[in-house]
Write a protein that binds this DNA or RNA. Structure first.
Length: 965
RNA sequence: GCGGGGGUCGCCAAGUCAGGUUAAAGGCGCAAGGCUUAGGACCUUGUGGCGAAGGCCUUCGUGGGUUCAAAUCCCACUCCCCGCACCA
């Protein structure tokens, strides 16, 4: 009858919970290990991708627990944010697409979907679902510490954190552009738009050219070229509007008026006018004072930015082309009554110099690409190319005042700042990937929020502290260090609050809700006290700043605080015991934000001794080689996957799929194979459950070999686990060691039921069970119990290597046997002989001497190039002449390529009694090849019809096979 | 553009930092044999090419170079993925 994995898993989950083995309390007698994983956002069920991070952390926790640490792994739920709110709005609006996702994909009962109009119900639903999944996966979590980020106590904690940041001067306020829905009157993120488009906001500089008291704001991405303006372009066929904005009069395109409303509080529409009305008028360049004409150009897009463009023909291909087109078209000049001579006099004014280009780089670009006129689509390419080259490589020319000589990349920022601060220009924001629609149907605009709160991650002294601490932190894997260092450098102000969503209100400005990446930076500290808050149902109002100051910082007088002294001290004690955090786990997508914020906030709030020690990061999960996505329909919800494969299989498969940072490819066939391997292992273990304790003193060669292998594997797996190389750990503990065990059993074919053999097999199995317990804990508990062991394997001690049980000589000889078999089999295969008699000739003594000499020489540092010469020095060898020279040649190449460890091993064994050993194996060998097997020493071979004995080398006996082809 | 990661023998994937355990682990798939009434599972073997003796040849994105020795070190090129923020 097949083993019912699910009920077995539930049984052990129940027993763990009853025995409370994963509940960790401070214990001064034991070293602690505290690790956390990023808590989930409950807006959808978790899937296999989420499971990877959690399984990794859990296996890590289980390993540390077995290593003797008082290990704490807590969990909470991140309710903060807007996506849940957005979903509830869509439910309220009866959005069929979303409801379909809930019902079909997430398998939510249709009857409760109506309750999802309340965002809290969505969060609670998936919170429950995710928690059940975590329990079904067997995660060793201390659930007494669970909380959500909208619990009043947590809210108090976040308020405390933010007041600290504020008083440390790390909170700033400023203007910030956001994607905005004018109909919903709220900011839009990716999840609020049709097609889940993230608005790509780009900042133009609108430079005000004065035209008789009314400004023409020319929008540009290249404000540094304002020195080279020859004219202004407007589209004669477009509609323009004169408006009053902040007391300024200006003329912009019809479409730009709407956009301006988001950026300026007061927009008054004065009059409409056609673009053509502007043609022929003149406006003054605010930086050079030059008066330039307004001219017509079709390439000007009234839907882009202000719809008014400055013309810099020296550096902008379109401007150059449009000017050329106009000059070549006297008809147009006449239609608008323009001054032909004035236009003829307009020539490019160079502003920057670019190596490899003439004074008018736009000319070069146009020529090289063979662009005809302003309608040619290649103009776009030329513009991009020139923009990039000039931005990175060009310098400002002497005619540009204080900016002369500056690289363009610097001058651009500087000029923009100067123009804006002197009110000669203003920033104009445009959505580059637009038009984007809000889910409500309205078109998304840009809104300039001018009272946005920021956490100032740009603060230089803060960064410096973070840099220093980062150097002391362990990063797993360390490959990520560079990336973290880069992120610390790039980080700027982070908008830390929004107008909507679930979460904690800013304590000093209740119109704002702290957003999710900002309220999740130091909550690992909160777990240490949430157990006590939950147990005592503490009144959140008692959690004052002073209380937190005392618990987390040791500040203030505890007797004056509004919490019972005993409870207060218990909280302080929990924190002091478990902090600092020993390891923080998360997916690699959180490196540029959460994980870095986590370091920043810790160093800002806590004293140095409580700064985090380690970050462990894992890659994501692919399904059958493809990225998981709703549209591909290849997202398997976790609870479904557990039903299909079982928790142990899932855990092992995910961790075995790839090493830490790589994306792990989950495949059905791989998982099924892991499951059958686990079941097979269970069967094997059960059949040895009643074996006795091994007696190492009576061990023979083969026993010593397998015992030695166990030591090697244990030591390898232990070090793999330490650096979270779980794939490697499973590989060695489960696959490699089991292969060795198979070999052992096969070699013992004749004496498999012998009690000594059985006790040795059980000894190996016991080690595998322990090493596999972090990965397949339920199955391992079951075996552990069958083995008659006391207690849970989950809290048993991790296996240790016993150096005294490593037997190098037995390892060498067993390897020798395997290589003999391999060689013999190859000869049989190639020659097609069906063997009747196999003779082995072991190496003569003089070859062994020479071999050891070669090894010793290499070990003492002799250059491989000089090895032959070194060996030839020996007079004994020279006496042997050609035979020796030939042998030396072959021995050199094989000793040089021998791994260092093996060289040492063979040297330490200083020779092997090969003939005696192979002699012991003849029964096995003749069984293996189903023929007669004999061994002779090549020193004096008795039977050697083909003269093979001369080929014998140390650990490489000569082989002679007789038989029919 | 800036930054990060990656291209390994059908697929997945170790190995690269510390060059020689490497024709290159392991898993999957495939094939043969064993077991079985059969299937599944399991065990053994094979899975670049050639080979009538354990060998030889070619191979780790491409092209060069360093070295007694290169998947690994250096240079150039090429292709793919991911992040760039207010959003979890």
């Amino acid at each position: 009858m097949p083993l019912d994995l699910r009920s077995l898993e539930e049984k052990w989950q129940r027993r763990w919970s009853e025995a409370r083995i994963f509940e960790a309390d401070p214990d001064p007698a034991k070293p602690k290990y505290y690790l956390t994983v990023a808590y989930p956002y409950p807006n959808s069920p978790q899937h296999i991708g989420h499971a990877r991070t959690y399984t990794l952390a859990d296996a890590h926790a289980r390993y540390m627990r077995m290593k003797g640490y008082n290990t704490l792994l807590p969990m909470a739920f991140h309710y903060t944010g807007t996506p849940i709110l957005a979903m509830s709005k869509r439910v309220a609006a009866n959005d069929a697409e979303l409801i379909d996702v809930f019902v079909k994909l997430y398998e939510v009962d249709e009857r409760i979907i109506d309750s999802f109009k309340d965002p809290l119900n969505i969060a609670k639903y998936f919170h429950h679902d995710i928690k059940l999944g975590m329990q079904a996966m067997g995660f060793s979590i201390d659930w007494r510490r669970e909380f959500t980020t909208i619990d009043p106590a947590y809210t108090k904690f976040i308020e405390w954190q933010f007041r600290h940041l504020l008083s440390a001067g790390l909170i700033t306020k400023g203007a910030h552009p956001v994607g905005w829905c004018p109909s919903c009157m709220s900011p839009v993120g990716q999840h609020d738009t049709k097609g889940d488009l993230e608005p790509d906001i780009v900042e133009f500089t609108a430079i005000k050219f004065d035209m008789d008291g009314t400004a023409l704001p020319v929008a540009t991405l290249r404000p540094e070229t304002v020195f080279g303006v020859t004219n202004i372009w407007v589209n004669p066929g477009a509609n323009y509007v004169e408006v009053e904005a902040n007391g300024d009069r200006m003329i912009v395109s019809e479409r730009a008026v709407q956009k301006l409303k988001g950026m300026m509080p007061q927009i008054l529409r004065l009059r409409d006018l056609a673009g053509s009305e502007l043609i022929g008028r003149h406006a003054r360049n605010p930086i050079t004072g030059t008066l330039v004409p307004v001219l017509p150009a079709e390439f000007v897009d009234p839907n882009n930015a202000t719809g008014v463009v400055m013309s810099v023909p020296a550096h902008a291909p379109y401007d150059l082309l449009a000017l050329r087109d106009l000059k070549a078209n006297p008809g147009i000049i006449r239609v608008y009554g323009l001054d032909e001579s004035e236009i003829a006099a307009l020539v490019p004014i160079p502003v920057v110099e670019l190596e490899g280009f003439s004074r008018v780089p736009a000319e070069d670009a146009v020529k090289r690409l063979g662009i005809r006129d302003q309608k040619d689509p290649k103009g776009e390419i030329a513009t991009k190319e020139l923009y990039q080259k000039e931005f990175h490589l060009a310098r400002m020319l002497p005619g540009t005042g204080v900016y002369a000589g500056m690289p363009v990349s610097k001058a651009k920022e500087k000029i923009k700042q100067d123009l804006v601060s002197s009110k000669r220009a203003f920033p104009f924001y445009e959505i580059m990937n637009g038009p984007i629609q809000c889910r409500c149907g309205a078109e998304v605009t840009v809104n300039l929020v001018d009272d946005q709160w920021f956490i100032n991650y740009a603060d230089e002294s803060w960064k410096e502290t973070v840099r220093k601490h980062l150097k002391n932190m362990s990063l797993v894997p360390d490959d990520l260090r560079q990336e973290f260092e880069n992120v610390v450098e790039w980080l700027k102000e982070k908008a830390c609050a929004r107008r909507a969503g679930l979460g904690t209100r800013l304590p000093w400005d209740s119109a704002w809700v702290i957003e999710s990446l900002s309220d999740s930076t130091i909550y690992m500290a909160f777990y240490t006290i949430s157990k006590i808050i939950n147990q005592h149902r503490l009144d959140p109002s008692a959690l004052t700043d002073e209380v937190f100051d005392y618990i987390f910082l040791g500040k203030g007088d505890p007797s004056s605080l509004p919490i019972e002294r005993e409870i207060l001290e218990a909280m302080r004690n929990e924190f002091n015991y478990f902090y600092p955090l020993d390891s923080r786990h998360s997916g690699r997508d959180l490196v540029p934000n959460h994980l870095t914020f986590f370091i920043f906030n810790h160093v800002a709030i806590f004293p140095e001794k409580h700064w985090p020690r380690q970050i462990a990061v894992n890659g994501s999960v692919l399904m059958e080689g493809k990225k998981m996505s709703k549209s591909l329909g290849n997202i398997i919800p976790l609870h479904k996957a557990i039903m299909i494969y079982g928790a142990d299989t899932l855990r092992t498969s995910i961790l075995f799929a790839s090493e830490l940072l790589q994306d792990a490819d989950f495949s059905d066939s791989q998982a099924k194979s892991i499951r059958s391997k686990l079941l097979e292992f269970y069967d094997l273990a059960c059949s040895y459950a009643d074996a006795g304790m091994p007696d190492f003193s009576s061990a023979d060669h083969l026993d010593k070999w397998i015992i030695s292998r166990v030591q090697r594997v244990v030591s390898q797996v232990d070090s793999s686990m330490q650096c979270l190389r779980m794939r490697e750990a499973i590989h060695c503990a489960f696959f490699i060691l089991q292969q060795d065990l198979q070999w052992y059993i096969r070699r013992r074919a004749d004496r498999c039921s012998d009690p000594r053999t059985r006790s040795i097999v059980k000894y190996v199995l016991r080690a595998i069970v322990k090493m596999m317990a972090p990965f397949a804990p339920h199955l391992c508990e079951e075996i552990w119990e069958k083995f008659g062991e006391d207690g849970f394997v989950s809290v048993a001690s991790y296996p240790e290597t016993d150096q005294a049980l490593i037997c190098e000589r037995d390892e060498i000889t067993e390897d020798l046997l395997k290589s003999i078999i391999c060689d013999t089999a190859e000869i049989i295969k190639v020659t097609g002989i069906s063997p009747a008699r196999i003779c082995y000739y072991t190496s003569p003594k003089w070859k062994w001497d020479l071999y050891l000499k070669a090894l010793a020489a290499l070990e003492s540092g002799v250059d491989p190039r000089g090895l032959i010469r070194e060996l030839m020095k020996d007079p004994e060898i020279r006496k042997r002449g050609g035979e020796a020279a030939k042998f030396i040649n072959s021995i050199c190449s094989c000793t040089i390529t021998l791994p260092k460890e093996d060289r040492k091993k063979i040297l330490r064994a200083s020779g092997i009694e090969e003939a005696a050993f192979i002699g012991e194996c003849t029964t096995f060998l003749s069984e293996y090849f189903k023929c007669k097997v004999e061994v002779q020493s090549a020193d004096l071979p008795g039977y050697d019809p083909n003269g093979k004995a001369g080929q014998a080398a140390p650990l490489r006996p000569a082989i002679y096979i007789e038989g029919q082809r």
